[in-house]
Amino acid sequence: MNLTLKIWRQENEKAQGKFVTYEVKDISPDSSFLEMLDILNEQLVNKIQLPIAFDHDCREGICGMCSLYINGRAHGPDEGITTCQLHMRKFSDGDIITIEPWRSRGFPIIKDLMVNRDAFDNIMQSGGYISVNTGGIPDANSIPISKENSDLSMDAAACIGCGACVATCKNSSAMLFVSAKVSQFALLPQGRTEAKIISNIARMNREFLCANFS
């Protein structure tokens, strides 16, 4: 596959950014999107040019680091995946692909496609945890939990904090992230000992609403 890539390049948060066009050739349809960017970066390094900075870690759809806005959609054209799980077979030979970082003042750009997501970490620190007593391992059935609550809690815990909800929302709201982190604990008995909801939402307001409207 031969592709034209329009990639956002920006030296840092304060610098003026712009789209830069690159051509990549002979990309395998079985390559992942990040592998395609790896190939492009290798070409740039061989030409003594700066590689494109982008976030990645596990490349298994778990960590949520690979946060890219691809052709106007968070994580690209596929459904229910992260960027690292996107494969080039979702595109066609000759396609023009526009690649951007998350667009939110709550996620300031570090460089190129990398953004600072400390806001999510701060929300988690303010209330995205529960206190537990250490000691021996309790019996698995010592605290009865209904299957409905267990399933709902597991669904909420599926949020990996990638930030796609913030990037997609026109108001850059983090409410989906906050509600998931609140629900995954609040639905279980262990999470009811602390009332963390108010502090979570207050922190979200400071991190995102203030950033977006300042």
Rank of each mutant, 00 (worst) to 15 (best):
L209R: 02
N149Y: 06
E35W: 13
D121W: 09
M36G: 03
A15Y: 05
K47E: 15
I81D: 00
Q190M: 15
I201R: 04
S153G: 06
M154D: 10
L176P: 13
N46A: 13
A211C: 05
Q190T: 12
S146T: 10
A119L: 05
S28Q: 14
V24S: 11
T98H: 08
A164M: 02
S131E: 11
S31I: 07
D139Q: 14
I109Q: 02
S131I: 12
G64P: 10
K147N: 12
G161E: 02
A180S: 15
S142L: 08
S214D: 13
I110S: 06
G106A: 05
W8T: 02
S142K: 04
S199L: 08
A157W: 06
M1V: 08
K25N: 14
K147H: 12
N171E: 13
P51L: 15
S92G: 11
A164T: 02
C63H: 09
A157T: 09
W8G: 01
N171W: 15
G163K: 02
F107N: 01
N116V: 07
D155Y: 05
C84E: 03
I143R: 03
C63L: 06
S28D: 10
V178F: 01
G72T: 07
V24P: 07
D55T: 07
R103Q: 12
C58T: 00
A164V: 00
S179P: 00
C169Q: 03
N200I: 09
K6D: 06
I130T: 15
S153F: 04
E13N: 09
